[in-house]
Design a protein around this nucleic acid. Structure first.
Lengths: 235, 235
DNA sequence: ATAAAAAAGTGATAAATGTCATCATTTGAT
DNA sequence: ATCAAATGATGACATTTATCACTTTTTTAT
Protein backbone atom coordinates (compact mmCIF):
# COMPACT_ATOMS: atom_id res chain seq x y z
CA UNK A 1 0.00 0.00 0.00
CA UNK A 2 1.46 3.31 -1.06
CA UNK A 3 0.34 5.65 1.65
CA UNK A 4 3.30 8.01 1.76
CA UNK A 5 4.30 10.14 -1.18
CA UNK A 6 6.94 12.77 -1.55
CA UNK A 7 5.28 16.06 -2.32
CA UNK A 8 6.41 17.60 -5.59
CA UNK A 9 7.62 21.20 -5.26
CA UNK A 10 8.02 20.66 -1.57
CA UNK A 11 10.29 23.68 -1.50
CA UNK A 12 7.26 25.73 -2.40
CA UNK A 13 5.99 25.17 1.13
CA UNK A 14 6.44 28.54 2.79
CA UNK A 15 7.31 28.08 6.43
CA UNK A 16 7.17 31.81 7.02
CA UNK A 17 3.40 31.66 6.86
CA UNK A 18 3.36 29.54 10.01
CA UNK A 19 3.39 31.44 13.27
CA UNK A 20 5.86 29.15 15.02
CA UNK A 21 8.58 30.07 12.53
CA UNK A 22 7.95 33.80 12.51
CA UNK A 23 10.92 34.39 14.80
CA UNK A 24 13.43 32.95 12.34
CA UNK A 25 15.66 35.09 10.14
CA UNK A 26 15.55 34.73 6.37
CA UNK A 27 18.74 32.65 6.29
CA UNK A 28 17.55 30.41 9.09
CA UNK A 29 14.27 29.83 7.27
CA UNK A 30 16.18 29.03 4.10
CA UNK A 31 18.39 26.47 5.75
CA UNK A 32 15.41 24.92 7.54
CA UNK A 33 13.54 24.72 4.23
CA UNK A 34 16.57 23.06 2.61
CA UNK A 35 16.82 20.38 5.25
CA UNK A 36 13.15 19.54 5.49
CA UNK A 37 11.31 17.01 3.39
CA UNK A 38 7.60 17.13 2.81
CA UNK A 39 5.43 14.11 2.24
CA UNK A 40 1.80 13.24 1.74
CA UNK A 41 0.33 10.78 4.23
CA UNK A 42 -2.90 8.86 3.79
CA UNK A 43 -5.55 8.28 6.43
CA UNK A 44 -4.53 5.55 8.85
CA UNK A 45 -0.81 6.10 8.41
CA UNK A 46 1.14 6.18 11.64
CA UNK A 47 3.92 8.74 11.89
CA UNK A 48 5.48 7.25 14.98
CA UNK A 49 4.50 4.91 17.77
CA UNK A 50 4.54 5.54 21.49
CA UNK A 51 7.87 4.29 22.79
CA UNK A 52 9.77 4.72 19.54
CA UNK A 53 12.74 7.01 19.08
CA UNK A 54 12.14 9.91 16.75
CA UNK A 55 14.81 11.99 15.13
CA UNK A 56 12.81 14.98 14.12
CA UNK A 57 9.53 16.79 14.34
CA UNK A 58 6.84 17.42 11.73
CA UNK A 59 4.97 20.56 10.76
CA UNK A 60 1.44 19.90 9.58
CA UNK A 61 0.81 21.71 6.29
CA UNK A 62 -2.55 20.16 5.58
CA UNK A 63 -4.80 17.47 7.06
CA UNK A 64 -5.56 16.24 10.57
CA UNK A 65 -3.71 13.87 12.89
CA UNK A 66 -4.67 12.42 16.21
CA UNK A 67 -2.10 12.21 18.96
CA UNK A 68 -2.89 9.55 21.51
CA UNK A 69 -1.53 7.35 24.25
CA UNK A 70 -2.35 3.69 24.65
CA UNK A 71 -3.41 2.52 28.11
CA UNK A 72 -2.10 -0.73 29.55
CA UNK A 73 -5.23 -2.53 28.40
CA UNK A 74 -4.89 -1.27 24.84
CA UNK A 75 -7.47 1.49 24.98
CA UNK A 76 -6.55 4.77 23.29
CA UNK A 77 -6.65 8.11 25.05
CA UNK A 78 -6.62 10.97 22.58
CA UNK A 79 -4.43 13.78 23.87
CA UNK A 80 -5.04 16.26 21.07
CA UNK A 81 -5.52 16.70 17.36
CA UNK A 82 -3.01 18.45 15.13
CA UNK A 83 -3.94 20.49 12.09
CA UNK A 84 -2.19 22.87 9.72
CA UNK A 85 0.41 25.00 11.46
CA UNK A 86 0.84 22.56 14.35
CA UNK A 87 4.08 20.92 15.36
CA UNK A 88 4.25 17.19 16.06
CA UNK A 89 6.85 15.15 17.87
CA UNK A 90 8.60 18.25 19.08
CA UNK A 91 8.25 17.33 22.74
CA UNK A 92 10.27 14.13 22.36
CA UNK A 93 12.93 15.86 20.28
CA UNK A 94 13.51 18.48 22.95
CA UNK A 95 13.20 16.31 26.04
CA UNK A 96 15.36 13.71 24.38
CA UNK A 97 12.97 10.98 25.42
CA UNK A 98 11.18 8.24 23.51
CA UNK A 99 7.87 9.28 21.97
CA UNK A 100 5.22 9.28 24.67
CA UNK A 101 2.35 9.26 22.16
CA UNK A 102 1.38 7.75 18.84
CA UNK A 103 0.52 10.02 15.89
CA UNK A 104 -1.96 8.77 13.33
CA UNK A 105 -3.34 10.48 10.23
CA UNK A 106 -7.09 11.03 10.48
CA UNK A 107 -7.52 13.19 7.35
CA UNK A 108 -4.98 12.86 4.52
CA UNK A 109 -2.10 15.10 5.45
CA UNK A 110 0.91 16.93 4.06
CA UNK A 111 3.71 16.94 6.60
CA UNK A 112 7.17 18.45 6.55
CA UNK A 113 9.85 16.63 8.48
CA UNK A 114 12.39 18.73 10.38
CA UNK A 115 15.48 16.85 11.60
CA UNK A 116 16.32 17.15 15.31
CA UNK A 117 19.81 18.60 14.80
CA UNK A 118 18.47 21.42 12.67
CA UNK A 119 15.74 22.22 15.18
CA UNK A 120 17.97 22.11 18.22
CA UNK A 121 20.66 24.18 16.57
CA UNK A 122 18.05 26.80 15.67
CA UNK A 123 16.88 26.84 19.27
CA UNK A 124 20.46 27.46 20.34
CA UNK A 125 21.16 30.33 17.97
CA UNK A 126 17.78 32.03 17.97
CA UNK A 127 16.42 32.88 21.43
CA UNK A 128 13.23 34.33 20.02
CA UNK A 129 12.50 31.02 18.31
CA UNK A 130 13.36 29.18 21.51
CA UNK A 131 11.01 31.43 23.43
CA UNK A 132 8.12 30.89 21.05
CA UNK A 133 8.53 27.11 21.23
CA UNK A 134 8.68 27.35 24.98
CA UNK A 135 5.47 29.37 25.01
CA UNK A 136 3.84 26.75 22.85
CA UNK A 137 4.82 23.97 25.20
CA UNK A 138 3.79 25.91 28.28
CA UNK A 139 0.37 26.60 26.80
CA UNK A 140 0.00 22.94 25.96
CA UNK A 141 0.93 22.04 29.51
CA UNK A 142 -1.72 24.41 30.81
CA UNK A 143 -4.34 22.76 28.61
CA UNK A 144 -3.27 19.30 29.62
CA UNK A 145 -3.63 20.17 33.29
CA UNK A 146 -7.01 21.70 32.64
CA UNK A 147 -8.24 18.59 30.91
CA UNK A 148 -6.77 16.40 33.62
CA UNK A 149 -8.91 18.23 36.17
CA UNK A 150 -12.00 17.90 34.00
CA UNK A 151 -11.57 14.18 33.54
CA UNK A 152 -11.02 13.76 37.25
CA UNK A 153 -14.00 15.84 38.31
CA UNK A 154 -16.63 16.09 35.62
CA UNK A 155 -19.22 13.53 34.61
CA UNK A 156 -19.11 11.84 31.21
CA UNK A 157 -22.06 13.97 30.13
CA UNK A 158 -20.24 17.19 31.01
CA UNK A 159 -17.08 16.02 29.29
CA UNK A 160 -18.87 15.06 26.11
CA UNK A 161 -20.45 18.50 25.85
CA UNK A 162 -17.06 20.03 26.52
CA UNK A 163 -15.36 17.90 23.87
CA UNK A 164 -17.92 18.94 21.26
CA UNK A 165 -17.19 22.58 22.07
CA UNK A 166 -13.47 21.93 22.00
CA UNK A 167 -13.81 20.39 18.54
CA UNK A 168 -15.78 23.44 17.49
CA UNK A 169 -12.96 25.72 18.64
CA UNK A 170 -10.29 23.65 16.96
CA UNK A 171 -11.96 22.80 13.65
CA UNK A 172 -14.77 25.35 13.37
CA UNK A 173 -18.29 24.82 12.14
CA UNK A 174 -19.29 25.00 8.48
CA UNK A 175 -22.13 27.25 7.18
CA UNK A 176 -24.55 24.65 8.48
CA UNK A 177 -23.15 24.71 12.07
CA UNK A 178 -21.70 21.25 11.50
CA UNK A 179 -18.36 20.26 13.02
CA UNK A 180 -15.69 20.26 10.33
CA UNK A 181 -14.20 17.02 11.57
CA UNK A 182 -15.75 13.61 11.53
CA UNK A 183 -14.81 11.12 14.17
CA UNK A 184 -16.12 7.68 14.99
CA UNK A 185 -18.06 7.24 18.22
CA UNK A 186 -15.10 5.28 19.49
CA UNK A 187 -12.74 8.17 18.82
CA UNK A 188 -15.08 10.54 20.63
CA UNK A 189 -15.12 8.09 23.53
CA UNK A 190 -11.33 8.03 23.50
CA UNK A 191 -11.26 11.80 23.80
CA UNK A 192 -13.85 11.94 26.55
CA UNK A 193 -12.32 9.01 28.39
CA UNK A 194 -15.36 6.75 28.49
CA UNK A 195 -16.92 3.70 26.82
CA UNK A 196 -18.12 3.89 23.22
CA UNK A 197 -21.64 2.88 24.27
CA UNK A 198 -21.81 5.76 26.72
CA UNK A 199 -20.96 8.24 23.96
CA UNK A 200 -23.59 6.72 21.69
CA UNK A 201 -26.26 6.97 24.35
CA UNK A 202 -25.34 10.52 25.36
CA UNK A 203 -25.24 11.73 21.76
CA UNK A 204 -28.76 10.35 21.29
CA UNK A 205 -29.79 12.12 24.45
CA UNK A 206 -28.28 15.42 23.28
CA UNK A 207 -30.14 14.87 20.04
CA UNK A 208 -33.52 14.36 21.68
CA UNK A 209 -32.79 17.37 23.86
CA UNK A 210 -32.33 19.35 20.62
CA UNK A 211 -28.75 20.33 21.41
CA UNK A 212 -27.30 18.64 18.36
CA UNK A 213 -28.36 16.91 15.16
CA UNK A 214 -26.71 13.72 13.97
CA UNK A 215 -26.12 12.58 10.43
CA UNK A 216 -23.74 9.65 10.49
CA UNK A 217 -20.48 11.07 11.75
CA UNK A 218 -21.52 14.62 11.07
CA UNK A 219 -22.51 16.49 14.18
CA UNK A 220 -24.43 19.74 13.94
CA UNK A 221 -24.44 21.98 17.00
CA UNK A 222 -27.80 23.67 17.30
CA UNK A 223 -27.79 24.90 20.90
CA UNK A 224 -24.32 26.00 21.84
CA UNK A 225 -25.24 28.04 24.96
CA UNK A 226 -26.94 24.96 26.40
CA UNK A 227 -23.91 22.81 25.58
CA UNK A 228 -21.74 25.32 27.40
CA UNK A 229 -24.05 25.12 30.37
CA UNK A 230 -24.13 21.33 30.38
CA UNK A 231 -20.36 21.13 30.04
CA UNK A 232 -19.77 23.71 32.78
CA UNK A 233 -17.36 25.36 30.40
CA UNK A 234 -16.15 28.74 31.47
CA UNK A 235 -13.86 30.93 29.46
CA UNK B 1 -0.18 35.98 61.33
CA UNK B 2 3.41 36.24 60.33
CA UNK B 3 3.81 33.41 57.91
CA UNK B 4 6.38 34.88 55.56
CA UNK B 5 9.87 35.83 56.69
CA UNK B 6 12.83 37.09 54.79
CA UNK B 7 15.64 34.61 55.09
CA UNK B 8 18.80 36.04 56.59
CA UNK B 9 21.93 35.42 54.56
CA UNK B 10 19.73 34.77 51.56
CA UNK B 11 22.72 35.45 49.38
CA UNK B 12 24.24 32.31 50.84
CA UNK B 13 21.77 30.27 48.83
CA UNK B 14 23.89 28.70 46.13
CA UNK B 15 21.87 28.42 42.94
CA UNK B 16 24.70 26.56 41.25
CA UNK B 17 23.85 23.48 43.25
CA UNK B 18 20.48 23.26 41.48
CA UNK B 19 20.47 21.39 38.21
CA UNK B 20 18.23 23.85 36.36
CA UNK B 21 20.82 26.60 36.75
CA UNK B 22 23.83 24.54 35.78
CA UNK B 23 23.81 26.04 32.30
CA UNK B 24 24.37 29.60 33.54
CA UNK B 25 27.74 31.34 33.48
CA UNK B 26 29.27 32.66 36.69
CA UNK B 27 28.26 36.24 35.90
CA UNK B 28 24.72 35.21 35.01
CA UNK B 29 24.43 33.29 38.26
CA UNK B 30 25.72 36.31 40.15
CA UNK B 31 23.23 38.67 38.62
CA UNK B 32 20.41 36.20 39.19
CA UNK B 33 21.47 35.82 42.81
CA UNK B 34 21.52 39.63 43.20
CA UNK B 35 18.01 40.04 41.88
CA UNK B 36 16.39 37.21 43.77
CA UNK B 37 14.89 37.40 47.23
CA UNK B 38 14.48 34.41 49.47
CA UNK B 39 11.75 34.01 52.02
CA UNK B 40 10.49 31.48 54.49
CA UNK B 41 6.85 30.41 54.05
CA UNK B 42 4.77 28.62 56.64
CA UNK B 43 2.41 25.71 56.01
CA UNK B 44 -0.85 26.88 54.52
CA UNK B 45 0.62 29.95 52.87
CA UNK B 46 -0.51 30.47 49.29
CA UNK B 47 2.12 31.71 46.84
CA UNK B 48 -0.31 32.58 44.11
CA UNK B 49 -3.88 31.77 43.15
CA UNK B 50 -5.17 30.28 39.94
CA UNK B 51 -6.15 33.17 37.68
CA UNK B 52 -3.78 35.71 39.21
CA UNK B 53 -1.00 37.44 37.38
CA UNK B 54 2.47 36.51 38.55
CA UNK B 55 5.60 38.46 37.85
CA UNK B 56 8.19 35.88 38.59
CA UNK B 57 8.91 32.28 39.39
CA UNK B 58 10.16 30.63 42.59
CA UNK B 59 12.86 28.06 43.18
CA UNK B 60 12.16 25.76 46.07
CA UNK B 61 15.17 25.61 48.38
CA UNK B 62 13.49 23.64 51.13
CA UNK B 63 10.01 22.34 51.96
CA UNK B 64 7.08 21.01 49.96
CA UNK B 65 4.34 22.75 48.02
CA UNK B 66 1.25 21.44 46.33
CA UNK B 67 0.28 22.78 42.94
CA UNK B 68 -3.40 22.34 42.20
CA UNK B 69 -6.30 23.45 40.09
CA UNK B 70 -9.76 24.14 41.44
CA UNK B 71 -12.67 22.54 39.57
CA UNK B 72 -15.86 24.50 38.87
CA UNK B 73 -17.46 22.99 41.96
CA UNK B 74 -14.58 23.98 44.21
CA UNK B 75 -12.88 20.60 44.45
CA UNK B 76 -9.08 20.61 44.22
CA UNK B 77 -7.16 18.55 41.72
CA UNK B 78 -3.52 18.24 42.68
CA UNK B 79 -1.33 18.49 39.60
CA UNK B 80 2.01 17.91 41.28
CA UNK B 81 4.13 18.56 44.33
CA UNK B 82 7.24 20.72 44.28
CA UNK B 83 10.27 20.11 46.47
CA UNK B 84 13.82 21.41 46.70
CA UNK B 85 15.31 22.15 43.32
CA UNK B 86 11.92 22.55 41.62
CA UNK B 87 10.73 25.63 39.81
CA UNK B 88 7.27 27.06 40.45
CA UNK B 89 5.22 29.50 38.41
CA UNK B 90 7.61 29.31 35.55
CA UNK B 91 4.96 28.14 33.07
CA UNK B 92 2.88 31.29 33.51
CA UNK B 93 5.91 33.55 33.29
CA UNK B 94 6.94 32.05 29.96
CA UNK B 95 3.54 31.62 28.37
CA UNK B 96 2.60 35.09 29.54
CA UNK B 97 -0.72 33.83 30.81
CA UNK B 98 -2.46 34.09 34.16
CA UNK B 99 -1.53 31.39 36.65
CA UNK B 100 -3.44 28.23 35.80
CA UNK B 101 -2.83 26.67 39.20
CA UNK B 102 -2.68 27.60 42.86
CA UNK B 103 0.51 26.94 44.86
CA UNK B 104 0.19 26.21 48.56
CA UNK B 105 2.85 25.39 51.12
CA UNK B 106 2.41 21.90 52.59
CA UNK B 107 5.67 21.70 54.55
CA UNK B 108 7.33 24.94 55.70
CA UNK B 109 9.38 26.14 52.76
CA UNK B 110 12.25 28.42 51.79
CA UNK B 111 11.61 29.91 48.38
CA UNK B 112 13.64 32.23 46.21
CA UNK B 113 11.74 34.61 43.98
CA UNK B 114 13.12 35.25 40.51
CA UNK B 115 11.59 38.24 38.67
CA UNK B 116 10.19 37.57 35.18
CA UNK B 117 12.43 40.09 33.41
CA UNK B 118 15.57 38.51 34.77
CA UNK B 119 14.42 35.02 33.83
CA UNK B 120 13.31 35.92 30.33
CA UNK B 121 16.45 37.89 29.62
CA UNK B 122 18.55 34.91 30.72
CA UNK B 123 16.55 32.68 28.39
CA UNK B 124 17.31 35.09 25.58
CA UNK B 125 21.05 35.30 26.14
CA UNK B 126 21.77 31.74 27.21
CA UNK B 127 20.48 29.07 24.82
CA UNK B 128 21.69 26.24 27.02
CA UNK B 129 19.61 27.58 29.89
CA UNK B 130 16.66 27.97 27.52
CA UNK B 131 17.10 24.40 26.37
CA UNK B 132 17.20 22.99 29.87
CA UNK B 133 14.02 24.84 30.82
CA UNK B 134 12.39 23.59 27.67
CA UNK B 135 13.39 20.04 28.53
CA UNK B 136 11.90 20.47 31.95
CA UNK B 137 8.60 21.66 30.54
CA UNK B 138 8.51 18.93 27.91
CA UNK B 139 9.09 16.26 30.53
CA UNK B 140 6.33 17.73 32.65
CA UNK B 141 4.01 17.68 29.66
CA UNK B 142 4.81 14.02 29.09
CA UNK B 143 3.94 13.24 32.70
CA UNK B 144 0.75 15.24 32.57
CA UNK B 145 -0.41 13.32 29.50
CA UNK B 146 0.49 10.05 31.15
CA UNK B 147 -1.55 10.86 34.21
CA UNK B 148 -4.43 12.10 32.08
CA UNK B 149 -4.58 8.67 30.45
CA UNK B 150 -4.44 6.95 33.81
CA UNK B 151 -7.26 8.99 35.26
CA UNK B 152 -9.33 8.35 32.16
CA UNK B 153 -8.76 4.62 32.06
CA UNK B 154 -7.78 3.21 35.43
CA UNK B 155 -10.00 2.44 38.39
CA UNK B 156 -9.71 4.37 41.63
CA UNK B 157 -8.01 1.37 43.21
CA UNK B 158 -5.35 1.27 40.49
CA UNK B 159 -4.81 5.01 40.70
CA UNK B 160 -4.41 4.99 44.47
CA UNK B 161 -1.73 2.29 44.24
CA UNK B 162 -0.06 4.32 41.51
CA UNK B 163 -0.17 7.52 43.54
CA UNK B 164 1.45 5.82 46.53
CA UNK B 165 4.26 4.65 44.25
CA UNK B 166 4.55 8.10 42.71
CA UNK B 167 4.90 9.62 46.18
CA UNK B 168 7.58 7.06 46.91
CA UNK B 169 9.50 8.11 43.82
CA UNK B 170 9.18 11.79 44.59
CA UNK B 171 9.75 11.85 48.32
CA UNK B 172 11.44 8.53 49.03
CA UNK B 173 10.87 6.18 51.94
CA UNK B 174 12.62 6.50 55.28
CA UNK B 175 14.56 3.63 56.93
CA UNK B 176 11.22 2.21 57.97
CA UNK B 177 9.77 2.13 54.40
CA UNK B 178 7.46 4.97 55.35
CA UNK B 179 6.57 7.69 52.84
CA UNK B 180 8.46 10.87 53.67
CA UNK B 181 5.45 13.06 53.10
CA UNK B 182 2.26 13.17 55.06
CA UNK B 183 -0.95 14.10 53.36
CA UNK B 184 -4.53 14.14 54.56
CA UNK B 185 -6.92 11.58 53.10
CA UNK B 186 -8.58 14.47 51.30
CA UNK B 187 -5.30 15.49 49.68
CA UNK B 188 -4.70 11.92 48.56
CA UNK B 189 -8.21 11.91 47.11
CA UNK B 190 -7.44 15.15 45.29
CA UNK B 191 -4.40 13.56 43.72
CA UNK B 192 -6.20 10.37 42.73
CA UNK B 193 -9.25 12.23 41.53
CA UNK B 194 -11.86 10.59 43.73
CA UNK B 195 -13.92 11.11 46.90
CA UNK B 196 -12.23 11.22 50.28
CA UNK B 197 -14.35 8.31 51.53
CA UNK B 198 -13.16 6.15 48.66
CA UNK B 199 -9.53 6.76 49.59
CA UNK B 200 -10.25 5.94 53.22
CA UNK B 201 -11.93 2.66 52.31
CA UNK B 202 -9.25 1.64 49.83
CA UNK B 203 -6.42 2.44 52.22
CA UNK B 204 -8.07 0.21 54.81
CA UNK B 205 -8.38 -2.47 52.18
CA UNK B 206 -4.70 -2.15 51.22
CA UNK B 207 -3.93 -2.40 54.90
CA UNK B 208 -5.90 -5.61 55.44
CA UNK B 209 -4.28 -6.98 52.28
CA UNK B 210 -0.92 -6.32 53.97
CA UNK B 211 0.26 -3.95 51.23
CA UNK B 212 0.67 -0.99 53.54
CA UNK B 213 0.58 -0.10 57.22
CA UNK B 214 -1.15 3.02 58.47
CA UNK B 215 -0.24 5.20 61.39
CA UNK B 216 -2.22 8.40 61.21
CA UNK B 217 -0.98 10.13 58.09
CA UNK B 218 2.14 8.03 57.92
CA UNK B 219 1.94 5.36 55.26
CA UNK B 220 4.39 2.48 55.27
CA UNK B 221 4.75 0.51 52.06
CA UNK B 222 5.31 -3.13 52.89
CA UNK B 223 4.55 -4.88 49.60
CA UNK B 224 5.74 -2.71 46.75
CA UNK B 225 5.71 -5.38 44.01
CA UNK B 226 2.06 -6.04 44.77
CA UNK B 227 1.30 -2.31 44.68
CA UNK B 228 2.98 -2.13 41.28
CA UNK B 229 0.83 -5.01 40.10
CA UNK B 230 -2.38 -3.51 41.45
CA UNK B 231 -1.58 -0.13 39.94
CA UNK B 232 -0.63 -1.64 36.59
CA UNK B 233 2.43 0.55 36.74
CA UNK B 234 5.02 -0.23 34.13
CA UNK B 235 8.35 1.51 33.90
C1' DA C 1 -5.15 22.27 79.06
C1' DT C 2 -9.23 22.74 76.79
C1' DA C 3 -12.60 23.67 73.44
C1' DA C 4 -13.60 24.07 68.68
C1' DA C 5 -12.60 22.68 64.24
C1' DA C 6 -10.91 19.53 61.08
C1' DA C 7 -10.10 15.02 59.67
C1' DA C 8 -10.93 10.06 59.76
C1' DG C 9 -13.88 6.28 59.65
C1' DT C 10 -18.28 3.61 58.68
C1' DG C 11 -22.72 2.05 56.89
C1' DA C 12 -26.56 2.63 53.86
C1' DT C 13 -27.94 3.97 49.62
C1' DA C 14 -28.16 6.17 45.10
C1' DA C 15 -26.30 7.34 40.83
C1' DA C 16 -23.17 6.91 37.17
C1' DT C 17 -20.87 4.21 34.17
C1' DG C 18 -19.03 -0.04 32.23
C1' DT C 19 -19.76 -4.63 30.24
C1' DC C 20 -21.82 -8.04 27.50
C1' DA C 21 -24.73 -9.81 24.04
C1' DT C 22 -27.02 -9.00 19.97
C1' DC C 23 -28.59 -7.00 15.72
C1' DA C 24 -28.68 -3.26 12.25
C1' DT C 25 -26.17 -0.24 9.38
C1' DT C 26 -22.34 1.73 7.14
C1' DT C 27 -17.81 1.59 5.22
C1' DG C 28 -14.14 0.05 2.51
C1' DA C 29 -11.55 -3.27 -0.16
C1' DT C 30 -11.60 -6.19 -4.11
C1' DA D 1 -21.36 -4.23 -7.20
C1' DT D 2 -20.58 -7.28 -3.57
C1' DC D 3 -19.21 -8.99 0.70
C1' DA D 4 -16.56 -8.89 4.89
C1' DA D 5 -15.31 -6.01 8.44
C1' DA D 6 -16.03 -2.18 11.12
C1' DT D 7 -19.08 0.81 13.31
C1' DG D 8 -23.42 2.12 15.41
C1' DA D 9 -27.31 1.15 18.24
C1' DT D 10 -29.93 -0.86 22.09
C1' DG D 11 -31.34 -3.56 26.21
C1' DA D 12 -30.21 -5.96 30.43
C1' DC D 13 -27.35 -6.11 33.97
C1' DA D 14 -23.13 -5.75 36.99
C1' DT D 15 -19.90 -2.92 39.07
C1' DT D 16 -17.84 1.01 40.56
C1' DT D 17 -17.97 5.11 42.75
C1' DA D 18 -20.22 9.08 44.87
C1' DT D 19 -23.17 10.93 48.34
C1' DC D 20 -25.21 11.47 52.75
C1' DA D 21 -25.61 11.06 57.53
C1' DC D 22 -23.41 10.18 61.51
C1' DT D 23 -19.74 8.94 65.09
C1' DT D 24 -15.09 8.91 66.61
C1' DT D 25 -10.53 10.62 66.63
C1' DT D 26 -7.01 13.93 65.86
C1' DT D 27 -5.31 18.48 65.22
C1' DT D 28 -5.04 23.29 66.15
C1' DA D 29 -5.72 27.67 68.29
C1' DT D 30 -6.22 30.11 72.47
Amino acid sequence: MKNIQSVPFSDEVDLLSYEIFSGLTEEELDSLTQSMSCTLHKRGNILYHEGSRINGAYVVIKGILKIYKTGFDGKEQIIRFAKDGDLIGFRSVVSDELACTTSKVVNDAVLCYLPSEVLTSLIKVNPEFAMSLMKLTCRELGESNKFLTDIAQKTVRERLAEVLLLLMDTFDLDEDSTLQISLTREELANMVGTATESVIRLLSEFKSDKLIELNGRKIKLINIPKLIKIGNVYI
